[in-house]
Every structure is written in C-alpha cells, then in structure tokens.
Simulated scan of single mutants.
Amino acid sequence: MTTLSIFRKVAVAEGISYLLLLFVAMPLKYWAGMPLAVKYTGWAHGLLFVMYIVILIMAWQEYKWKFTKTAMIGAASLLPFAPFIVDKKLKEEN
C-alpha cells in the first residue's frame, strides 16, 4: 500500500467524520441535548485530522509535491466536502 493510497483513504474518512460532526453530532448536542455525540465524534475527527496532516507531510516528502499543492490539500481539510474533491483529484493524477 502506497503513502498516496493511505492518504486518500484517510482523507475520505476525515471528510466523513467532519460531516458527521457538523451535520449529525452538533445538532444532536444543541437540539436534542446529547453532548456525548460531539464528544465521541469530535474525538474521532480530531484523530483523523492529525492523521491527515501527518500523512500529507509524508506524501509531500515522498512525492516531492510543490508547497502550494501541499498547502491547498491541507487547507481542504478545513472545508466540508473538500477532502472528497482532493481524493478525486489525486485519483485522477495517478
């Protein structure tokens, strides 16, 4: 398994966890009084976010990407749905 394939899988998982946090856990916390939804989903998302950044740095070094490309991919982790676009673009490149 290559660093890029691992990164793509983590990117998709991170994107899913972010959407779950924003659109499922947060409403459950504030509208249904279930704060544990955010606690556990947030913890999982945080772990996946750290993995995303670490593996991104590994891919940057291994594939010798330009800094701007790496920075854009890193910034994508902060936007809902953007990790899925990153995954698609990286898949098209290979």
Rank of each mutant, 00 (worst) to 15 (best):
F67S: 14
L47E: 00
I73M: 10
A44P: 00
Q61D: 08
A44L: 14
V50I: 15
W60Y: 11
M34F: 04
G74S: 11
M51F: 12
W60L: 12
I53E: 02
Y40Q: 02
L47P: 02
T68A: 14
L48W: 00
A75S: 11
T68K: 15
I57K: 05
A75R: 03
V54P: 08
H45C: 09
T70N: 09
T41K: 00
T68L: 11
M58V: 14
Q61T: 03
W43Q: 10
K69T: 15
W60G: 09
Y63M: 15
I73V: 12
A59T: 10
L47W: 02
I73T: 13
W43E: 11
A59S: 09
I53A: 13
I53G: 04
L56T: 11
M34S: 04
Y52R: 05
T41R: 02
A59R: 07
A59K: 07
M51C: 12
M72D: 06
M58C: 02
L47C: 10
L47R: 01
Y63Q: 12
F49P: 08
M51A: 15
T68F: 13
V38H: 08
V50W: 10
I55G: 08
Y63T: 01
A44F: 08
K39D: 01
K39Q: 04
M72C: 15
A59E: 03
T68M: 09
W43K: 07
V50D: 12
V54C: 12
A71D: 05
G74H: 01
E62M: 03
